[in-house]
Design a protein around this nucleic acid. Structure first.
Lengths: 197, 197
DNA sequence: CGCTTCTCCTAACACAGTTAGGATTCTCAT
DNA sequence: ATGAGAATCCTAACTGTGTTAGGAGAAGCG
């Protein structure tokens, strides 16, 4: 039978989470206030504690939700088999995801919230996303951990820069393409050199 | 004549700043508390307001000090004239500076403190550091803004990754070298291609 | 209908940054 | 040396934060 009680609970929880995202986008991640969230959903602040054990639990739920969104978008990114083109597509997706919602990026990848650390549960979701990303790259032929680190550094660096400079601009597309070409040339050369003796 | 009054003021101010760095390193940047700083220097919290107008002013002073430290170290980085070697040296200095004191890096480059934005004055010091860095790179032959963005992204990405993975390790030296070789090959190719028609 | 459980409330606490206002002490020209 | 003036440092108190305690009322289910 339908469990009306827990359905209602989940619905309210989602409502609170939405309100939390609203405040976070408006006031910044650190500017998020339980009192503000409560006002938005028409409750008194302590009432939120029926749905989240603490403010950190709210951040944690936002984190997990962000990871899930990342995964969904990732699954929609079509690959062609052309390594360089796919590399560009993955990078574009990643940086597009980051710039689309800087608050979310900040929470997921910059870990900029004062004392917050994702719970084991949420972290697992995050790991799943990374695994999928790594799978994509392996499909392209990038498996060397050092090369992967290089690529990761390039990706997060570009995203950071993009967000702090002109989020929403499109100069970054050129920059990403250039970066990926640079990276592709590098690993191609290395693979030709035959690093596995 | 010696102005004993302002000397004493400056001395106490420096003392407070040191205490602030101590707490920041121990508790994290966001965990810095005026009450904690006051306890460390043997004062009551409100007394700090004779030296700093607000908590943000403390962050601001820390920011400016960090920038000055960056400049000093930068001036000590000797260049040889060999472009690739110099590129590596600059990158190593940058990332060494970042990993040496992650708290300082966080304040200077990640801007992770809740509502803090550096004042115009402190920001000027920061700009001076960037100008010097840009000068170094120009000396090596890197002036193309897009190439510079690419390099910046690579540098901050590597620093971020290094700090969150194994600060103090030395694997990053290899990674930096590899990154700089990759970057150098890229701009060399581009310059040969003759991007200036 | 009656029992249980959940929801949401008010009151209050601890701990931030910060302000007000007043002793005390230091500095320096007279 | 001494008194005016300024700087230092204090206590008390305010606002806004997250959070806890405890209870009134509604919702759901037999």
């Amino acid at each position: 039978m339908r469990d009306r009680k827990s359905e209602r609970h989940a619905r309210t929880r989602a409502e609170i989470l939405d309100a939390a995202w609203e405040t976070a986008r408006a006031e910044g991640l650190a500017g998020l206030t339980l009192r503000d969230v409560a006002r938005r959903v028409g409750m008194q602040p302590p009432s939120l504690y029926s749905y989240f054990a603490s403010k950190d639990a709210v951040y944690d739920a936002m984190f997990a939700q962000g990871c899930r969104e990342f995964l969904e978008g990732q699954a929609r990114t079509a690959l062609t088999g052309d390594a360089l083109a796919d590399l560009k597509a993955v990078a574009r997706y990643f940086i597009g995801f980051c710039t689309e919602n800087p608050t979310r990026y900040q929470l997921l990848f910059q870990r900029t919230v004062p004392g917050f650390e994702p719970s084991a549960e949420s972290f697992a979701v995050s790991e799943e996303g990374l695994k999928a990303l790594r799978g994509m790259l392996a499909g392209i032929g990038v498996t060397d951990p050092e090369a992967l680190d290089l690529l990761t550094a390039l990706g997060t660096g570009l995203a950071d820069q993009q967000i702090s400079n002109d989020p929403g601009g499109d100069r970054w597309i050129r920059l990403i393409d250039e970066a990926m070409e640079m990276y592709f040339a590098h690993i191609s050369k290395r693979m030709k050199a035959g690093d596995a003796p």
